[in-house]
Computed example of a mutant assay.
Amino acid sequence: MSNIDDRFEIKFWGVRGSIPCPGTETVRYGGNTSCVEMRVGKERLIFDGGTGLRILGQSMLSEMPLMAHLFFTHSHWDHIQGFPFFIPAFIKGNKFNIYGLPAPNGATIKQRLHDQMLHPNFPVPLQIMQANLEFYDIEAEGKITIGDVIITTGKLNHPGEALGYRVSWKGSTAVYITDTEHFPDRLDENVLRLAQDADVLIIDTTYTDEEYYQKGSSKVGWGHSTWQEAVKIAKAVNVKNLVLFHHDPAHNDDCLDRIGEQAISVFPNTVLAKEGLIIKLKHPLS
C-alpha cells in the first residue's frame, strides 16, 4: 500500500471560466469555476477559489483539523467567488496560508478577499471566519518553498495581471497557467519558462482559434487563449501531458468533446479538465 504522504495527485473541482454554468448541457465536464487541488507529499495546495472551492470545502469537513495553502492567480470574480462559501475557513482550529500577487493598484489579496465580503455584496465580513488565516503577498517572478515542495511563479498576460504557478517535488512537475492570452507573433517567454519539461500542464484554453479571431466578435484583448496555442506551447517545451482548462461557459459538453478530439489528433497526450478528474504523477526520485 502506498504512503499517502508520498504522492503527487491533482484533482479538479472547478474547470470553467467567467461564470458558473450549471445545467443539463454541462453535466459531463461541470459548471463550477476555477479550483484545482494538489496533494503533494505532506502538503495540500489549492489553486484559485472559484465556485469549485465550495465543493472542495465540503469534502474536507471529514478531515479536520485542516492545514492547506491557497494560491490565487488573480482576483477576477470567477477565481474568488467560492471563497465566502468555503466552510472550513469558518471553523476554528483549521489553518490556511493564502497567497496572491498585489494588484496593480496596490490592493493585497487579503484586501480583495475582504472587500468582496462587505455589504452590500455579502451578508457577513471576512472577520467572521474563525480559522487561522495567514495572508502572503508574493512576487510575480519568485519562488516559494513549502516543506520539500517548490512553487515557482510567473507573470501572465491578463488584464489586471495574473500569476502562473509551477509546482515541483521529487523530480515531478505540475504547472497551472490561467488566465493568460497568447501573443500574436511569439510564444510567451514566461509561459515557456514555467511549462518547460512539465509532467502536467494545466492551461487556459477558453477559446478556439476560430472564436478568438472571428470577425465582428473577436476575443483579442480579453485575456484568454486557445487550445491551438496551448498545443504549440506543449510541443515547444516538451510537456508530457496537456490539460485544457478554463472552459468557456458557452462551450457545452458536446462542444468540448469536439475540441478534445481535435486537440488529441495533434497532441495525443491531451485531456480536457472536468470536475472530479484525478491525475496521479509518478515521481522518479522516490
Rank of each mutant, 00 (worst) to 15 (best):
F8G: 07
E9D: 07
F12A: 08
T26G: 05
Y29H: 15
T33S: 12
M38C: 11
R39D: 05
G50A: 03
T51F: 06
L61D: 01
S62F: 13
E63T: 05
E63D: 12
H69D: 13
I80M: 07
F86G: 00
G93A: 08
L101Q: 01
T108N: 07
Q111Y: 11
H114E: 13
H114R: 12
M117V: 02
M117F: 03
L118G: 00
Q130L: 13
Q130C: 12
A131E: 01
I138T: 08
E139I: 03
G147E: 08
I150E: 06
I151M: 11
T153W: 04
L156W: 02
H158V: 00
G160K: 12
E161N: 11
E161Q: 10
V167P: 04
S168C: 09
W169G: 07
W169Q: 02
A174T: 11
V175G: 02
D179N: 11
H182S: 12
R186N: 03
L187Q: 00
R193I: 01
D199H: 13
D204Y: 04
Y207V: 11
E211H: 08
K219L: 05
G221Y: 01
W227C: 01
W227R: 01
K232L: 14
V237G: 07
V239K: 06
K240Q: 14
V243M: 14
F245R: 06
F245L: 03
H251G: 11
N252S: 13
D254K: 14
I259E: 08
I259A: 01
G260D: 09
I264K: 15
I264L: 14
S265A: 14
S265K: 08
G276P: 15
S286M: 07
